[in-house]
């Protein structure tokens, strides 16, 4: 593997991240204050790290000011990704039903203008109103008002979807777990400033990078032993001699440009003291049509 690019003193591997098309939607959740937005966001995007084992990949895009929300209250933008529109609708309906509808003072609105291929959320949840729900059409949008014990839950009828990308990633190869984690935290902090992307894993960081398949038939994915420092003597390792820990940053975004920008910002933030190399996860280009070559993302030269 030839090294062509460096950021600070960190080598950038001549490889690419492989990502997949996914269907995405954005929920704007508002509540009485930011505290309840946060409670709701954490619940609604919980257990949504990877579609390998979850119904959706989800995360907080950003918190919204009162001026940015449809009802003038504090809000939060959540992004959800799934492999199909049907799967996305099922997952989001369940999550809104259990985690947004139930959360005090909340309301839920569509955050993607394009409604050509919508999924129905409020239109599914309205039945909770048991006949007392009310439909309201304002402009081109329909809202459902469902009576609840603290007043009412307002939810938009349909939500727009968009063809997004899931699985943009890069690997931080560090000389110690402490240095690797610190670099990962820096990358996460930088990426979280950007719109249209989420980091679906806990804290935005993955420590259990996976490969496709397993020696056990029932498993779709298993540990990527080539990047496990503890196995470096016994399996063909992808790790340089001085690497003692690897952390992966996984990015889902609404477009190729969004992923590229997030990877660039994240890599630049992660290239700090103690980080030996930045690499990326791929499957030889056979599984995902979106390839993000690290050298191209970083501009092709020493950054």
């Amino acid at each position: 593997m030839s090294i062509q690019v460096k950021v600070n003193s960190t080598k950038i591997a001549d490889t690419f991240a492989e990502a997949f098309p996914m269907t995405a939607c954005r929920l704007i959740v508002t509540a009485a204050n930011r505290n309840w937005c946060q409670h709701c966001a954490l619940a609604a995007t919980g257990y949504a790290a990877s579609v390998i084992g979850c119904d959706t990949e989800a995360g907080v895009e950003r918190f919204l000011s009162e001026e940015e929300t449809p009802d003038g209250r504090a809000g939060v933008a959540l992004l959800f990704f799934a492999f199909s529109r049907e799967g996305l609708q099922k997952a989001v309906v369940n999550r809104v039903a259990q985690c947004v509808l139930t959360c005090p003072t909340t309301a839920c609105y569509n955050g993607i203008e394009n409604k050509e291929k919508p999924i129905q959320i409020g239109g599914q949840l309205r039945y909770f109103g048991d006949g007392w729900q009310m439909s309201k059409v304002l402009g081109t949008a329909r809202y459902w008002r469902i009576p609840t014990m603290d007043g009412e839950f307002v939810c938009e009828d349909v939500f727009g979807t968009i063809k997004g990308i899931g699985g943009g990633n890069f690997l931080i190869l560090a000389q110690s777990p402490e240095a690797g984690l610190h670099a990962a935290e820096q990358a996460v902090q930088a990426i979280r400033q950007l719109p249209n992307v989420i980091l679906p894993f806990p804290g935005g960081v993955v420590r259990s990078g996976s490969k496709v398949g397993s020696r056990y038939k029932s498993l779709k994915a298993s540990t990527n032993e080539a990047y496990c420092p503890t196995l470096s003597g016994i399996v063909p390792s992808a790790l340089p001699e001085s690497v003692r820990a690897v952390y992966e940053i996984v990015i889902d975004g609404l477009s190729r440009e969004d992923i590229s920008r997030a990877m660039k910002v994240g890599i630049q933030a992660a290239c700090i003291s103690g980080v030996i190399e930045i690499s990326a996860g791929n499957y030889g280009g056979k599984l995902g049509p979106h390839h993000f070559r690290l050298s191209e993302i970083l501009g092709g030269g020493n950054a």
Binding site: P70, D71, Y143, G151, V154
Partner: peptide, 17 residues
Amino acid sequence: HVDLTFLRLLSRFLNRQ
């Protein structure tokens, strides 16, 4: 009496219009 979320939504919509 309750504070209806819909009223907030409606007033913002009317303002935009």
